[in-house]
Design a protein around this nucleic acid. Structure first.
Length: 694
DNA sequence: GAGCACTGC
């Protein structure tokens, strides 16, 4: 290990020290052929990041913030934490943290690193994700965690004092929690000059990250410089993917679905073997494409026999998702038709051809109407590159873009809009408030959300009684709501259930509303699913229906057979049990008495009203087709066809969430008595034009 | 008559 740079020794050779304090290190490869090294050690040294080891350690030692730009396959995620540990950053009981946006990545990376270090996972190398903490205080030196978990840790330890280095990986994805974390870490740095940050990103967004972390130089006593340089260093590490040949379409296509299908067929006819990955936007598109390809296979056997066509999206059951990972039978070609899930969350091996529609479904938030919309929108250049890269994992590949090169160059934006600027900010604002950040409007974000969105979030929290007139967290309600890892409206519902004596029921409902859907995706068995649903249906609405499902599941002994018979998603129910258990623990800690209301569903509906009064709607008296209007803003909305109240249309209802397609659909609705609204939120409904009287 | 993807004490 002596060839590696250690803190305090002479600095390594740096080729370029550009203005603005940006350092580029151009490494000359110096990997000693490792006679006597174990296999793992040799593998580690073959990773592209290895030859930057010395440079990385030097930059981290001398700069408060280091930005590492590295493509996939560079090895940065698994290696850098180990380099830091080898250089002594975990000495003296300190911990090196590495965050990921996704739990699966946390687990995978942690177990790989534990293996490379030859230690048992959960000891020197550990990880923490929601529901699972495989780390030991005083023992774990390298800890992987989701950025959301690190944010939660800040509630107990705002300066994150146990960490010596925090590496924020996949920062280019700009997820909500990554951005909040980056903003807070910048603040922490001012109080903890000895803390080191590594921001790791796949793209050259490095420059804007660098500007964000640029701070004024701190001066010690008598003008002496103290501590590390405050200007961020940038280092770029090459990846190790194979070359992917990009083909753009010559003329814009009128129908990307049709174009995707014919592109798949011509690849199959003309190109050598290798699996195909097609990016479309959603379940509908994907099922249609699968069907078209299968029809083609029947009608026109000679061209498309030998194709195994598989859909991939998150709504599929686990078993159906796993099909895409099964090896392709000999002489067959696998075609996976996928949503964005295959862009970052899942990695398919063996893909040689990618067909990119150029679109994905994206969330947009309108703070004026307070509605989040899901719309099909063009992807960014960064996203297009990421999709193309999926073709070059095993050998050189090809990517067929269903849009013109001119369009790519001139029309596509470089990066997607950060989630922060496309989301409802209630959870985000309450988290910052809980961390003692009072001036939300003045907070230094990597990408500032619109003032309208922040003001709307403050208004919602104020109406919930979570913030007071000075926009400070109320006590105890505000602090309790902040403790619960759910949307503040559902947290408020849980807290209200305490007085109403139905906390057991509400916690169950909260857990079920946290998973995507407890029903299996219909996929051709729509009638059977609807019939199964009707067996549980309650006149009060979906929330109460869920209580019967949960009861049935428990009575069956949590049986997967029972789930199968009733069109219930077994994996979703297991997740419900997990979330419910967590909520129970938190509720108990907050002093909520766990109590069941037995058959009295009126208190359950009242509790929901206490949290979701802002989502109250009234059926339009003379409308055809079940049109409702929201009381708050007279927005036109409809009950979603998946609801048990679809076509039942009670006069007064409250919805849990809206999904917007051609119409605004209310998902998960419950009937209420309008007089409860004034009880639950007199301040909210006092000034409104009073339709309740009519 | 219909559902992008993640995540959290």
């Amino acid at each position: 290990m002596s060839q590696f740079w250690k803190p305090g020794s002479e600095k390594p050779r740096l080729l370029d020290d550009e203005e603005g304090g940006v350092l580029f290190y151009s490494a000359s490869a110096s990997s000693s052929s490792g006679f006597g090294y174990s296999n793992i050690e040799k593998q580690r040294q073959r990773l592209p990041v290895y030859k930057y080891r010395t440079a990385i350690l030097y930059l981290v030692e001398t700069h408060a913030t280091t930005i590492i730009v590295g493509e996939t396959g560079s090895g940065k995620t698994t290696q850098i934490p180990q380099y830091l540990k080898e250089a002594g950053w975990a000495d003296g009981g300190r911990v090196i943290a590495c965050t990921q946006p996704r739990r699966l990545a946390v687990q995978a990376v942690a177990s790989r690193v534990a293996e490379e270090m030859g230690v048992k996972l959960g000891e020197e190398v550990g990880y923490t994700i929601r529901f699972e903490d495989l780390s030991k205080t005083g023992v774990t030196m390298v800890k992987f965690l989701t950025d959301g978990v690190l944010l939660r840790e800040m509630m107990d330890d705002p300066l994150l004092t146990k960490y010596s280095v925090i590496m924020v990986d996949e920062a280019h994805e700009r997820s909500l929690s990554t951005d909040i974390l980056l903003g807070l870490l910048k603040k922490i740095q001012r109080r903890r000059p000895e803390l080191r940050l590594i921001i790791s990103s796949a793209t050259i967004e490095a420059k804007s990250m660098s500007t964000f972390f640029q701070t004024r130089k701190r001066r010690g006593l008598e003008g002496e410089e103290s501590g590390p340089r405050t200007d961020p260093a940038i280092l770029s590490v090459e990846g190790r993917g194979f070359n992917v040949q990009i083909h753009h379409i010559e003329e814009p296509v009128p129908d990307y679905l049709q174009a995707a299908v014919s592109t798949v067929l011509s690849i199959h006819e003309q190109e050598p073997m290798g699996d195909i990955l097609v990016f479309l936007t959603g379940e509908n598109d994907i099922d249609a494409a699968v069907q078209l390809l299968n029809e083609e296979a029947q009608n026109n056997g000679k061209h498309s026999s030998g194709l195994v066509v598989l859909p991939l999206y998150s709504g599929l059951s686990r078993a159906d998702q796993d099909l895409v990972f099964s090896p392709t039978p000999r002489g067959k070609r696998k075609v996976v038709i996928s949503t964005n899930i295959a862009e970052t969350s899942l990695t398919l091996e063996g893909i040689v051809y990618v067909v990119d529609s150029g679109f994905s479904k994206q969330r947009f938030y309108n703070p004026i109407s307070d509605i989040e919309n899901l719309v099909v929108a063009p992807i960014s250049k960064a996203s297009a590159r990421q999709r193309a890269g999926r073709a070059g994992r095993v050998r050189p590949g090809k990517c067929y873009r269903l849009y013109t090169e001119e369009y790519f160059v001139n029309e596509m934006s470089a990066h997607a809009i950060p989630e922060m600027q496309r989301s409802n900010l209630v959870s985000c604002v309450i988290q910052l408030k809980a961390l003692g950040i009072d001036n939300i409007l003045g907070f230094d974000w990597p990408a500032s959300p619109s003032p309208e969105a922040m003001i709307r979030a403050l208004e919602v929290l104020y109406s919930l009684g979570v913030l007071d007139d000075d926009a400070k967290l109320t006590s105890p309600l505000g602090f309790q709501v902040a403790e619960i890892p759910l949307d503040p409206m559902i947290s408020k519902t849980i807290l209200s259930s305490n007085q109403l004596g139905c906390s057991e029921e509400i916690i169950t409902i909260a857990a079920i509303l946290s998973v995507q859907s407890i029903w299996v995706s219909a996929r051709g068995a729509q009638r059977e699913l609807d019939e199964a649903k009707m067996r549980f249906a309650a006149a009060e609405g979906d929330h109460v229906t869920y209580l019967s499902v949960y009861k049935g599941f428990i009575q069956s002994g949590k049986s997967s057979q029972w789930c199968y018979k009733n069109f219930i998603n077994y994996h979703a129910m297991k997740k419900v049990i997990e979330i419910r258990e967590q909520l129970r623990r938190i509720a108990q800690r907050l002093g909520i008495v766990l109590k069941s209301c037995e058959r009295d569903m009126e208190v359950v509906r009242k509790a929901v009203t206490a949290g979701f009064f802002a989502n109250a709607c009234c059926l339009e008296a003379h409308s055809q087709g079940g049109m409702y209007k929201t009381i708050r803003s007279a927005q036109e909305v409809y009950i979603h066809p998946s609801s048990v109240l679809f076509r039942v249309n009670p006069k007064w209802i409250i919805y849990n969430s809206l999904v917007s397609t051609d119409r605004q659909y209310m998902r998960n609705v419950i009937s209420i008595d309008p007089s409860w609204l004034m009880e639950a939120a007199p301040h909210f409904y006092r000034q409104q034009r009073n339709p309740i009287a009519s």
